[in-house]
Write a protein that binds this DNA or RNA. Structure first.
Lengths: 144, 144
DNA sequence: GTGCTTGCAAACAGTTTGCAGATAG
DNA sequence: CTATCTGCAAACTGTTTGCAAGCAC
């Protein structure tokens, strides 16, 4: 967990190391992703990038997000009913708390979650690769 | 957690109590849902029902599944990349273990998961309504 | 200069919806 | 008898893909 600026530099270095080109659109997306506290959607990121680069297309945003996902630098939270949300600050599995009314997503502190992975692996014989833990509820603002 | 036949009767009773009509297609779906050990998809259920009722449409299956979901009698596992899967035997939040290769889904025993909901609620001030915990990995058969 | 990247538009896939005819109660 | 349900087809939505032009290196 690093500050946005050094996270941004990390991402730049990673892309360079893999011989990906640093286009202005990509750099702008990396900057947003590196400070993505609010778990933004692709559309949300797209709209922020359009301010600086009005010709940017959603496809470019999706392509770059998938690139970063494949590099393990972004965590994608997919929803069957709703847009995917992205976390570029903490690109490893961790719990999320989702307000069902305003759709805000935050990262709660939850103890011993990683122990569960070990427990499941031992109990089932599966090779557990990843996990996802989401809590759904109403945030303080939305409890009226 | 009851046996398929009494679960089936429960579902019948529930629909009757809410004045929903028991059409042959619905009854067939209830029967499948009541014994849904394998977390089937809508398409999978549709194909099984088509054997008995060849004119059934996917729309009917989706409509009935949504009805059961709204009544709290079916748990829907939505995936952004893949078909939704349904659990009519245990229609309450519980952990799932998903093989990323063959897409088989099972229910592992995991200890103290419900304690986490309480922990998150106290820590964040959210009113936590539900949760979802999925583990992704390779089942014994798929580890080759 | 080369070939990766962009931006547009069309395609995609699972699910939902609208509606006319069928049917459970 | 009547309101609900079915089955078909079209619509929907977020994401992906194909391709020609653009540009990073």
């Amino acid at each position: 967990m690093s500050d946005p600026e050094s996270r941004f530099q990390q991402l730049i270095t990673k892309l360079k190391a893999h011989d990906y080109r640093l286009t202005p659109q990509r750099v702008a997306l990396l900057r947003l992703i590196a400070s993505s506290e609010g778990h933004p959607s692709a559309t949300h990121l797209y709209e922020q990038i359009k301010v600086q680069f009005p010709t940017t297309s959603p496809a470019t945003v999706y392509k770059t997000l998938n690139l970063l996902k494949d590099l393990g630098e972004v965590l994608e939270l997919g929803f069957s009913n709703d847009d995917n949300r992205y976390d570029g600050s903490r690109p490893y599995p961790h719990p999320h708390l989702i307000c069902v009314r305003c759709r805000k997503i935050m990262d709660p502190q939850v103890s011993h979650v990683d122990d569960l992975t070990q427990e499941v692996a031992e109990l089932t014989g599966y090779q557990v690769i990843s996990h996802r833990l989401d809590f759904y509820g109403l945030c303080p603002d939305c409890q009226q």
